[in-house]
Design a protein around this nucleic acid. Structure first.
Lengths: 334, 334
DNA sequence: CTGAAAGCGCTAACAT
DNA sequence: ATGTTAGCGCTTTCAG
């Protein structure tokens, strides 16, 4: 590995000047900068992050904590964050915390404290008080996505409003017997998203003067399969059938769609279905949904962190994340 | 941040002993080790990777290069690698290289050369000669998944054999008019996987004395939607219809499944469908597939790298990756 | 604008 | 088994 001294020698300047020229910190004459640049290029010199971070305290690396890697929503957020960070020259180190509890503990007690990162982005994870304070104790910029998380700067999405919007769409189409698939008690891992979506649903109904029918609620686990089974229970019985289903995620909505087909129920003629997320498969199935733009969420978090790192005057105001009703083919008037 | 001197002082030993005790390198008496441990614990001391890696040359960090983050296969491999690495105490730094070409170049010319990682895992990416040699020039253990990649140690899967297995399954069920969805010329980004699968298909047919019918081949892009459209072309025409479809990925197979339903073709009574991958949705749809265990692929790559890093005698033999036919409900005798 | 030099916090000889 | 000490390769005062 070629080191800074060789570059300095070749450029005919001191190592201090090389450092300044390459990092852009401190003044360097145009001429010196040029000589350093070309010396570095010709030698294939790359600043050692080991040495640089020890000396400067900056690592050019951001840590991203995710609860799952193999679920579309999270990997998409991660993808957005990663590409924005890499474009800015930062490396991204990944902390996947739900594989097992011991690892999760280690992440907060050890991994994140190794001084390997300049900042951390926590994607859609419910942190307990201890973890939150461990994060704060790092003394680094930290930003959460999906909050709100008390004590952490968070890019948040009003999950209640999302659910409200989806439900209102159904109500505007004339539906009154609306079922909801979501909020299984055991699936509250992240930010109580499921139950917030359920309250948004109930709130929208209430505003329209509709009393929620407990028989029209089915808990499920946010997978396609869970949505399928919940929909079968909802639609396969002998009792009165809802004219619409609001599923708390697109994956469950897709499951419901398949269930309806299997039961010979036409969508949207006999049944309207709406989901939430903006899942890529939703487009294929023509699913009406409330998109929450996960890729953009990752990008926004990255920009916010970068702004803070590059010392943008004051921490850029963290606005709420956008969402939007995408009307496709699975919803129609009663 | 508490530093090693404080631990040394509290434990009543030198910093060298603290270092030895905590890293497990070099001899330390049981008693000293204990004192150091408890001093470190009570102070909440964590070794600074900045300083440690500069002094030792080891970073306790592995780089993982992936072509996509938001596709199930890749994020699943990544998930497997990450959890194995983290369990061993390693951090994982992620390099997502297909977002844009400039970033890709930077990854090889700069990011990976910052001396931030001890080893590199390259997941299912076709590297050109220059990139391969840049990787070799790092002087680090490197392992590829999905190869073979000339010049790189690779965990490889015989894609031809996988496709053969899937096709033979169909042939064994008595099918002779077998269509294939796969290998679009423009989707050859990774290891020519698609075309290898196509040759496996043709090879199996040949062995059974069946001449491939060009009309029964449809190129597609490995998405559900692409599979759907290819299947519609295959099944919706007026010509003779195949009795079975072999799709080169589960996602395309699922698309084909949906297409068949939309056309009123019963699966598996009127049409058998088999895919490749072991996608989680395959289980939901009851899809017969050749599973290639992507999670395990990531784990195996991680173990191989760890073995090499922890200096297992000689580089553990890199065996081929396993795969298995999973017969579910979408295939049946003619 | 530039150079000299003092660290950054740890590890690894080298002694003992 | 343990302590002493010389770096690891940069960045950053501090002078000039």
């Amino acid at each position: 590995m070629v080191s800074i001294d060789e570059v300095a020698r070749l450029a005919g300047v001191s190592t201090a000047t090389v450092s300044r020229a390459l990092s852009g910190r401190g003044h360097v004459s145009e001429r010196a900068r040029e000589r350093v640049r070309s010396a570095a290029d010709s030698l294939g010199y790359v600043v050692s992050s080991r040495a640089s971070s020890l000396a400067s305290g900056r690592t050019q690396n951001v840590g991203v904590i995710v609860p799952f890697l193999d679920r579309w929503f999270f990997s998409t957020v991660l993808s957005g964050a990663t590409s924005a960070l890499m474009r800015a020259g930062y490396d991204v180190t990944l902390y996947n915390i739900t594989a097992d509890a011991a690892v999760r503990r280690e992440v907060f007690s050890t991994f994140l404290r190794r001084q390997r990162v300049d900042a951390v982005i926590a994607v859609a994870i419910e942190l307990d008080e201890h973890e939150t304070s461990q994060l704060q104790g790092l003394g680094l910029p930290v930003i959460g996505i999906g909050g709100p998380n008390p004590g952490l700067r968070t890019l948040s999405l009003d999950q209640t409003a999302l659910a409200c919007l989806a439900t209102e769409h159904l109500i505007a189409l004339g539906h009154r017997d609306i079922a909801h698939i979501g909020a299984a008690a055991e699936f509250e891992a992240d930010f109580r998203v499921p139950s917030r979506r359920r309250s948004g649903f109930e709130q929208a109904l209430a505003q329209a003067g509709i009393t929620p029918d407990p028989a029209l609620f089915e808990p499920a686990d946010f997978t396609v399969d869970g949505g399928y089974r919940a929909a079968r229970r909802l639609l396969g019985g002998t009792g009165p059938r809802p004219s619409a289903i609001f599923a708390a995620s697109d994956e469950m909505a897709i499951g419901a769609l398949v269930a309806a087909r299997d039961l010979g129920i036409r969508v949207p003629q006999d049944l309207s279905i709406v989901g939430i997320d903006g899942h890529e498969l939703g487009e294929f199935f023509g699913l009406t949904t409330v998109d929450q733009f996960p890729l953009a969420q990752g990008e926004r978090a990255a920009s916010a962190i970068l702004a803070q790192l590059e010392g943008a005057s004051d921490a850029a105001a963290v606005a709420d994340l956008p969402y939007e009703l995408i009307t496709r083919g699975t919803t129609a008037p009663v």
